[in-house]
Simulated scan of single mutants.
Amino acid sequence: MENVLAVIQVAFSVVLIFLVLMHSGKDAGLSGAFGVGTGQGKFGGGSMVERNLNRWTIAFALLWTANTILMLKTT
């Protein structure tokens, strides 16, 4: 059971990292100077895609937390 939870934890971690990296920046520093996170493009801005990305990120963060608690209880 512990091995299964550990594999699931790794999968949740990889997906969560990917989702966080998909978020646009705040246009600060060098990323703003080069046009990263300007909201121009098919995934930028405050569109429905951005709202759904926020929802998926929160959902996977909650799943990651619940799996962490399960892993602590099984040891």
Rank of each mutant, 00 (worst) to 15 (best):
A61T: 07
E50G: 12
A59H: 00
G37P: 04
A59I: 08
G45V: 07
A66Q: 02
A61E: 09
I58G: 00
F60A: 05
I69M: 02
G37M: 05
N52K: 04
L70W: 05
M71K: 06
G32N: 05
I58S: 02
T68R: 00
A33W: 03
G32T: 07
G41C: 02
S31D: 09
R51K: 14
N54G: 06
L53R: 15
G44Q: 13
E50N: 15
M71D: 00
G29D: 01
L53H: 13
N52C: 13
L53D: 01
G37K: 12
A33P: 00
M48G: 04
Q40M: 12
Q40D: 09
S31T: 06
S47D: 13
S47C: 07
G39M: 12
G45C: 07
T68P: 00
W64T: 09
A66K: 01
G41T: 01
A59L: 06
T68L: 12
N54V: 02
I58D: 02
G37A: 14
I69C: 03
N54P: 00
N52S: 12
L62Q: 05
N52R: 07
N67E: 07
G46W: 12
W56Y: 13
G44H: 10
F34D: 00
A59G: 01
Q40I: 15
W64P: 00
F34S: 08
T68W: 11
Q40E: 12
T38F: 11
L30R: 04
A59E: 01
I69S: 05
W64Q: 13
F34Y: 05
W64C: 10
G35N: 08
A66N: 01
G35L: 11
I58W: 04
R51Q: 11
Q40W: 12
G37C: 10
N52M: 15
I58L: 06
F60T: 15
L30F: 11
N52E: 07
G41I: 01
